[in-house]
Amino acid sequence: MILDIVSAALLLAGASQCLLGALGLVRLPSVLSRMQAATKPQTLGLFLILAGAALRVPLESAVTLLLVAVFQVITAPVIAQLVGRSAYNGGSVQPRLLVVDELAPRMPSEGPERPPG
């Protein structure tokens, strides 16, 4: 009974994190900020859902769920950096959305293309 309640709370909390991530994907203005919403609350949401699910399945399957979490942790940063770097170099980062950009002066030749105005 208590296990069910804990599990349900974890699943719901995880689902709401994923929902907030999806909302961020729609509402946030740039590739980089959208990536934060798409990857990070999602990671927490996934952990919570996995924890909630792990309470309800046999131990052996719960261990496999641990593997899902491990792969999430070791792959997400790699992908985040690749996409972020490409977005920056491809000029998808709008300067007006940045308070400061300390990278721009460093890469005059391959910096993002500034849209006029």
Partner: peptide, 14 residues
């Protein structure tokens, strides 16, 4: 940030 500022969210490169 998503809920409060949404499309007006800003960022910084440090």
């Amino acid at each position: 940030q998503t809920l409060r500022f949404g499309p007006r969210t800003r960022g910084a490169v440090l």
